[in-house]
Design a binder for these strands. Structure first.
Lengths: 192, 192
DNA sequence: GTCTATAATTGGATAGAC
DNA sequence: GTCTATCCAATTATAGAC
């Protein structure tokens, strides 16, 4: 949908139905025949982007079997690249901006974002722990700690300052810090 | 300023100069005699709120001398109560929403928010480490880890879902988790 | 300096022809 | 189903009187 680009780029208020119709190459009346209002169109756009987010995070969390450190690094790098990507940031920015007006969208995005990735990684940690690669009493709790250490302030910095790009060095720094600290806590005694 | 409440509550686009003038009890012309445009007024409002944020965080980081665990808990509780407060969240929401339009405001807010509190706590950690209360090689790095663990997803959840209130139980859970993990890493051997 | 009144523009939504 | 043309409301900003 052509509306997606404009909504995510310019936000809800600055995106006019005129502009969307023009980009889509249809008239405004036709646009209104597909979506009953600007609010409904916005909701459809965000829900679609949310589904895409859901799929991407599921892919990020799926990692080939290796040793614990390599898997954590791989997940960490992919996760950070994804959450700091321009697409992710613009989506979060728009939904945060309109969360007072569309609280359901914000709620759903949190579920499909933070909660989903925490569950996926928590489940992986539980399996790795059962397999003896790590020693974790509470995998879900540990997953949230790992994600918190990974992100630190990177996501907030991107949301607040669009000019500050997140380069590979930023990502490597955070991954190194998070993995080191995490393994220091949860590595099996016989392995470390 | 009367504009502050309206801008923070309704966002930039939905706040009209008519409404601000009405709330302030003056006419629109008078309002324009003080601020040359809506953008300038918005900038002034945010910069003032940013100064208030700066002062609040400085207060949060100032803690009486006690043992390390009590100080970390006290800072953690106050920090989390502050960043999840309705005032802080609405301010961040508005600035994030307009960060593409006003990148300087977002940049300044990040400096006066995340970077400031990290520096303040990092400096405290350095002093406590020198005094032998903790054993920290890189205090600034440790401060960012502590803050990341404290916040985890609480701030993002508040930004995305205004209906979900952060209660004292959420705060205590995160403080407990962060302080426990942090002390497990950095407590002086002879103390722990 | 402050007000009333009013430009000038924009945007969401619809009517009616085809 | 799709278009053109239009309505109606809201908004930024200013002109001009006092």
């Amino acid at each position: 949908m052509a509306a997606q680009g404009h909504f995510l780029e310019s936000g809800y208020a600055l995106t006019s139905m005129d502009a969307i119709a023009k980009i889509a190459g249809i008239s405004k009346s036709t646009l209104y025949s597909y979506f009953e209002s600007k609010e409904h169109l916005f909701g459809a756009v965000i829900q679609q982007a949310r589904q895409s987010l859901h799929d991407s995070l599921t892919t990020v969390a799926a990692v080939g079997e290796q040793d614990a450190e390599k898997m954590l690094r791989q997940i960490g790098e992919q996760f950070l690249r994804f959450v700091t990507s321009a697409d992710s940031i613009t989506m979060y920015r728009v939904v945060i901006a309109e969360s007072a007006h569309f609280p359901d969208l914000g709620h759903d995005l949190f579920q499909s974002g933070s909660n989903l990735i925490a569950d996926l990684i928590g489940e992986s940690l539980r399996r790795w722990s059962e397999a003896g690669l790590l020693s974790i009493a509470n995998p879900m709790h540990a997953a949230r700690q790992f994600l918190a250490l990974l992100k630190s302030d990177l996501q907030l910095r991107c949301l607040l300052d669009p000019r500050r790009v997140t380069d590979e060095a930023d990502i490597q720094t955070n991954v190194e810090s998070a993995v080191t600290l995490f393994l220091g806590l949860y590595r099996q005694p016989e392995n470390g």
